[in-house]
Design a protein around this nucleic acid. Structure first.
Lengths: 162, 162
DNA sequence: AGGAGACGCTTGAACCGTCAAGCGACAACA
DNA sequence: TGTTGTCGCTTGACGGTTCAAGCGTCTCCT
């Protein structure tokens, strides 16, 4: 920690940063834990299923789904293979363009989302919204948008290969 | 997404939530990417090294270090083994109580932190603080504290075994 | 039509984290 | 001083993610 770097963090920023990093890690872990315990799926798997459930025809291209779920295409491919084995999803080539693969939520997959969502939402509410004031919730939304656009469209998403 | 669950999310909350989850994942990934690219270490490894560098004698018990770095003891043990092989850290039993293991930062480890920190701090600043107003930085710190205490001392940290 | 290249996705290997079992060191009690 | 229990940590196997290479499909250009 040598001195006089051009733009060092001051104490306030440092504290914000440590608090945020800790929140980042522990909130992720807490959401994962709840889903794993109550539904036997990871947070990423939940995002995949929930993303499909909100889409028209319960269908999305793999690449769109990867973007929505903030994961790499490779990771999504492995995960969809597992979800397929569990009977919640199936894949089919896009009739409009054979390069695309469509992921489709089955009825069983829909049921899974319906059964899982309330508990998950309750946990999000308990850990994230209940402790905050209305004003903080508004600020948080704005902060999220600003940081997300600072990160850039895809800077952090290792979605493009090599 | 069936209706009238007791405490469903409204549109504003929903948007806050999606923004935050996305920020959560992408910010973690962005910080990891920067460190991996510029220093060849993971964010967790950085937290470990940086935690030691800020401690008296550059020394910390494994369990304290795990708490600081928000990771399990098992994970820390594996990571320290790797950092030991790279010559940045060594372990020694606590002379005061043989059950504890002390992790100590070597000179090479200190150099590594000094070389790595400025770039990392710059990235944190670029992605997290620069896009926010002073007021939002203050809010973020407060939000972090509130959410962290909602998660509880260790609810999300799988630091205790079995 | 045919070839080159771009695109979307998949695959297998290597790596990392988690989980459960187990080890040595210490404390409490007989 | 044993014995029992707890504590802090380590270990190996397992499961998931990443990385790089490769496949099939489509587009563009001649």
């Amino acid at each position: 920690m040598s001195a006089d770097e051009p733009r060092w963090l001051n104490d306030e920023e440092r504290e914000s940063w440590l608090a945020l990093v800790s929140m980042l890690i522990r909130l992720s872990a807490a959401l994962d834990t709840q889903l794993q315990r109550d539904a036997g799926i990871s947070h990423f798997e939940y995002q995949v299923l929930s993303g499909l459930s909100m889409s028209p025809e319960r269908t999305l291209r793999m690449s769109e789904l990867a973007l929505f779920a903030d994961g790499s295409l490779s990771r999504l491919s492995h995960v969809i293979k597992r979800l397929e084995k569990r009977g919640w999803v199936y894949r089919t080539p896009d009739p409009a363009d054979g390069r695309y693969t469509l992921a489709v939520l089955t009825d069983a997959g829909w049921e899974k989302v319906v059964a899982t969502a309330p508990g998950h939402v309750a946990e999000v509410r308990r850990l994230l919204f209940d402790p905050l004031t209305k004003a903080q919730q508004r600020q948080l939304r704005e902060i999220g948008h600003r940081v997300n656009s600072a990160i850039g469209p895809d800077e952090a998403c290792p979605n493009q290969q090599s």
